[in-house]
Write a protein that binds this DNA or RNA. Structure first.
Lengths: 359, 359
DNA sequence: GGATTTTTGAGGTACGCACCTCAAAACTTC
DNA sequence: GAAGTTTTGAGGTGCGTACCTCAAAAATCC
């Protein structure tokens, strides 16, 4: 049997009330007595039963997830993953609200964050570019005792508790090595496509990609980044333009969104299947393209893991318990057609539990 | 507030006792009343609080993990992962015992399994080759109400509840594509090394590898599998012998163990860095080799995920609750030097929790 | 050493649920 | 409609913890 608080009391030779005071950092206990209790805890190997503790506290976790209102398949995938993780987290008394904020309006985001605090939210997962306003807003949240994690894109200079996502420089390096190896021995040019280089993740990926190609595949020339800025047309024209001036185009690296337009443009240019395309993030479209062979490899992060990890980390931070670093490390996944994970249609993850009928 | 059993009672217009009888499938309730209660549950969206339920039942999960006593770094890694997952699972009243059984003695394994049942174990994770004896033993366990999952290597013709591991044919295909792409445009020979082709996983990988290379890279010739059978010397001699008869050796595919010997042999032959080496499983050695560049890519499964998934699935099966398929799917990881996950030295995953001091 | 402050102990209630008993109520059956 | 059976209700206890109150004991101060 696992030791309980009563066992601590007996072992330490004090009353239950004193053990309780020590366990919950309540005042009015002499240092000597505290020591006696912690010694006893150590000796009998007591581990607090979190389930019972949370039951007694009748605590529930209210968590908000803030995403930009940009329309992209990746964001939709993230939101869906968060909603699924949230549905599964109901059993552990966790309530999640996903909110979209206007991507272009930093003040709106800050106002939303301030509002959350009033609503009794105890944890926030946020995906947003770092701005001075956001830094202040996060500091305020933290000071109010709200746990904050950065999602997908880190906010290193804020006081966020944790970052849930991948090292994007390493992701870019990974894409670079794949490109280099897939084009091994060949010289040629590589086109790089992005939504915008303003976002931290895109920049970091490009940096990692360049570093590897430069150092290890000097025969490859990486062209200037084409930025779509949300306009499919602009991207399309840029691709056409550039491909005219790049006769030895052998590869295309897609830093973020833009896969759909690019795919169409490549088909029109007759380049489909003749250049190596490497991209990021798993979305319905990139998945299909990988399967069809128009994308050769994807460097991704598992959004399901991402969402579940964010919720777990927030709960841990709220409870002030340590997190399992191993479990919360998000890996950089390389996905080829051959190791594409099967789709799981998660009809109803929650069902009414049935008890154990067997002995 | 989440609805409770009392809310069901009020909503259904019955007593708490009746709700309890329905919830826990106890007899003596008219079908009409059962319907009224389930309707009420549906209406108010009641979800049983598993934490409280388990607390009330004072149930604890006793789980056994059975691994062969073969000495290999991969098995050691698995065992370590299970032990770490077990340490983290203490907080959810789960006790795990890892046991090694004699790899060559099917009867010993069966005897162990029979013994477990007597010890009040309610879940078993097992990694073993499928034999008729094992089939019977698993059936007996299941009939006694013990949950059983297969680990790493599936036992498809037994009545195991679940398989925790990857599709090894797909893993072999993945290795094949990597080999083909890394050697793109080149013709040449590929050596395949394994511990033994008797194990299901090795066979399936080889099958997947061959299928892809044959179909997509016809210029590559895959040589006969060299089997080490646990003897480093044997393997070493075989590698020397074969490399003499394979002048155009361009790649080596390592199906399972044997990386250490192979590495030494390659160095002696002066082939280090001149052939593409692709292997399976992350161990201290393969990790170092990947970092040093003597292995080019690894196709792996995350052992931490594997272990945690096995425990989660067993708990779910014991509780008769559905599992989150998305979370339990083990992915086929491709690991290059560039996306090598950082090592996390998990000194003490469990610490005494501190309560929330903030409001 | 008496008054004051600090520390400790004993006990209770609650969280949401499982599981038990006993009696009352509602149905059957002839 | 009386005797039997089945179904339902009321109530209690316990799981391990949090949090509260009040009084007793111990330490500290002047």
């Amino acid at each position: 049997m696992r030791p309980t608080v009563n066992d601590i009391a007996r072992e330490a030779g004090v009353s239950l009330a004193t053990v309780d005071r020590v366990l919950n950092d309540r005042p009015g206990v002499r240092p000597k007595t505290v020591q006696a209790v912690t010694d006893a805890i150590e000796r009998i190997g007591y581990v607090r039963d979190l389930a019972a503790a949370n039951l007694a506290r009748s605590r529930s976790y209210r968590i908000a997830c803030l995403l930009p209102d940009t329309q992209s398949q990746f964001l939709a995938t993230i939101e869906q993953a968060v909603n699924e993780a949230a549905a599964a987290a109901v059993v552990s008394r966790t309530e999640v609200e996903t909110l979209r904020f206007p991507a272009e309006d930093p003040h709106a985001l800050v106002a939303m964050l301030a509002g959350l605090q009033a609503q009794g939210i105890s944890g926030v997962a946020i995906m947003a570019p770092e701005t001075p306003h956001l830094r202040d807003a996060i500091r305020a949240l933290r000071q109010a005792g709200v746990a904050v994690v950065a999602l997908v894109s880190d906010l290193p200079n804020t006081e966020r508790d944790h970052f849930v996502g991948i090292d994007n420089v390493a992701a870019g390096r990974t894409a670079g090595v794949l490109m280099g190896r897939f084009l091994s021995g060949n010289c040629g040019q590589i086109m790089v496509v992005a939504q915008s280089l303003l976002s931290r993740d895109a920049l970091e990926r490009r940096r990692g990609f360049d570093a590897v190609v430069q150092a290890e595949y000097p025969d490859l020339e990486v062209l200037q980044t084409l930025e779509a800025h949300g306009s499919p047309d602009l991207l399309r024209r840029a691709v056409f333009e550039m491909s005219r001036h790049a006769p030895r185009l052998r590869g295309i690296y897609v830093l973020g969104s833009g896969h759909r337009v690019l795919g169409a443009a490549l088909a029109d240019l007759g380049l489909e299947g003749r250049v190596v395309v490497i991209g990021h993030e798993m979305t319905p479209h990139t998945r299909a393209a990988l399967q069809a062979g128009t994308i050769d490899a994807l460097v991704t992060q598992n959004t399901g893991h991402l969402a579940r990890s964010a919720l777990r980390v927030l709960r841990a931070k709220i409870d002030r318990v340590p997190i399992d670093e191993g479990q919360e490390q998000i890996r950089i996944d390389i996905v080829l057609r051959e190791n594409l994970p099967q789709i799981i249609d998660d009809a109803s993850p929650i069902a009414r539990p049935k008890p154990d009928e067997a002995a």
